[in-house]
Simulated scan of single mutants.
Amino acid sequence: MLHDREVPMTSSTRKLGIITATAAVTLLAGIAFVHPITKAFSQQMSMMNHGMSGDQQMPGMMQHMMQMHGQATMEMGLNAPTLAGQDAFGAVQEIVRILEADSTTDWSKVNFEALRQHLIDMDEVTLRANAPATSVDGGLEIAITGESRTLAAIQRMIPDHAQELNQMNGWHATTQMLPDGVRLTVTSSDPKEIAHIRGLGFIGLLVGGSHHQPHHLAMAKNEMVHQH
């Protein structure tokens, strides 16, 4: 005779318990890398091994597992990395995403190698050029020099960037080619802008303006006619 609270374990019930337990183990293995639940797993296995009815305990256990899986998935999305890990890589990645999202992109004209070479130039000028600055009447004079690949990058970038500076804040920018680089002079007739120019110095002037990002996009689309 069965006790009042005992439920007969039929063959189908035992099979259901085994199948459900197997599915639970598989699910736990799949989400373990984003949401450690070893302790919860041990507690659930302990309940199963103490003779509790499989058809009564398994559904509740599976519901709990699914809830934990949903939480782990959400946390993984919130904590997903966003940095590309390298600036030039990230700059190219940004342009790739823009072009792929644009249905009018003509992929037969796209030239990412030109953009990559320009980013190398930017790296050379930003990190390896010598750029001592001297205050002059109305602003600043900077002798930007380097060797080999750095020299080539300086002579490609600085004259074109001077044209951009000429369009900003009423400044006047000129360049003079040197055997080992370029002399950049930026001046203004406004005392506040003179202080502004001197405060920015070489690197501040180099990043001035908002043309860099559109310039990168145009270069990748092979729409640029100059080498900057």
Rank of each mutant, 00 (worst) to 15 (best):
H3D: 00
R5L: 03
E6D: 14
V7Y: 07
V7S: 06
M9Q: 14
M9W: 13
T13Q: 05
K15P: 08
I19M: 04
T20P: 05
T22R: 01
T26Q: 06
T26G: 05
L27K: 13
A29D: 12
A29H: 10
G30F: 10
I31H: 01
F33S: 05
F33G: 01
F33N: 04
P36N: 01
T38A: 11
K39E: 11
A40F: 11
M45H: 11
M45K: 13
M47Y: 10
M48N: 04
M48E: 03
G54I: 00
D55M: 04
Q56C: 07
Q57S: 09
M58Q: 06
P59G: 10
G60N: 13
M62L: 09
Q63C: 02
H69R: 05
H69Q: 06
G70E: 08
G70F: 05
T73N: 00
E75N: 13
N79K: 14
A80Q: 13
P81G: 15
P81L: 15
L83Q: 09
A84Q: 08
A84V: 04
A88W: 05
A91Q: 04
V92R: 02
A101C: 07
S103T: 14
T104N: 12
D106M: 01
K109C: 00
V110D: 09
A114G: 07
R116D: 07
L119T: 01
L119E: 01
D121T: 02
L127S: 12
R128G: 01
N130E: 03
P132Y: 03
A133I: 01
T134A: 09
S135H: 14
G138E: 06
G139K: 10
E141K: 08
E147S: 05
L151G: 02
I158P: 05
D160I: 15
D160Q: 15
A162W: 02
M168T: 15
N169L: 09
G170W: 04
A173M: 08
A173F: 08
M177D: 14
L178S: 03
P179A: 03
V182C: 03
T185C: 01
T185F: 03
T187A: 06
T187Q: 05
S189K: 08
P191S: 06
A195Q: 11
H196I: 01
G201H: 03
G201N: 04
G204K: 10
P214V: 11
L217E: 12
E223F: 14
V225K: 05
